[in-house]
Nucleic acid binder design. Structure first.
Lengths: 124, 124
DNA sequence: ACAAAATTTGCAAATGACTTGCAAAATACA
DNA sequence: TGTATTTTGCAAGTCATTTGCAAATTTTGT
């Protein structure tokens, strides 16, 4: 495993919240192409997952988080003021998604869910 | 109300599914800046709502749909093959969102939810 | 450990959605 | 209808992300 890939993997593993691709690209001492390519690689291999979120201050960016093999994925709340993410816990939509698949006949590859607003700290 | 604005408003009102900003910008006989500005205007005024969706073929685009004054908003399934949207009906997360607001203390401004996959027609 | 094969990197340029400044044109208002 | 206000088109800019390519690194087979 290359240095760039390991660095990115480590950051994702250690991070408590999703990190944006463009931020990684800016902050890490690797070429941006390398960062983006590795993020794709990690997601392809199932080590990471991502979603696109727009916030007025940071614009539209893709956020990545580490994905544990036996991990159920999480959903997040994003604070528009301090830009932190709050973990809403395990996804609880499994059953609902299955029901939709049955009633509509489609196959779901991915579902996207997140909240944006202002966190408790920033309100006070 | 200007011609451009009325045209865009009409399209959103008549459309059964969300339409992408960049597609409107390409197809309509108005400058792209005009299209984007009007979409922002309509959303600001509460006549439209939007979400960002990425699909491999069309890339990352913002999709708009008309918002009725007394309308509960809808969620959508997006087929990656035929690129149509399937209406999943009224949003049923109101209660859940309120509970999260109470337990975490944050205020939700927006929630994003949609599905992507392959529709029944495209599977066969 | 070593050379060949396969993969990854950096660089530089390109892409594509979306935004912005500004003067002209259209619309609203008195 | 004339004037103030808003909107438009044009052209250039921004910004996240992607891509081609040759050089550098990592992996493989021995």
């Amino acid at each position: 495993m290359t240095k760039a890939r390991k660095t990115i993997m480590d950051i994702l593993m250690k991070s408590e919240e999703p990190v944006s691709a463009s931020t990684l690209a800016k902050d890490l001492p690797f070429d941006q192409a390398t960062v983006y390519r590795n993020l794709h690689y990690l997601e392809d291999q199932g080590f990471a997952e991502s979603f696109i979120l727009h916030c007025s201050e940071h614009g539209t960016e893709r956020y990545y988080s580490y994905r544990n093999a036996n991990d159920v994925h999480h959903h997040w709340f994003h604070c528009e003021m301090c830009h932190r993410f709050i973990d809403l816990g395990h996804c609880a939509y499994g059953q609902q998604l299955k029901e939709w698949e049955q009633s509509y006949g489609f196959t779901i590859h991915e579902h996207t869910f997140f909240l944006t607003g202002v966190c408790a700290d920033c309100k006070s």
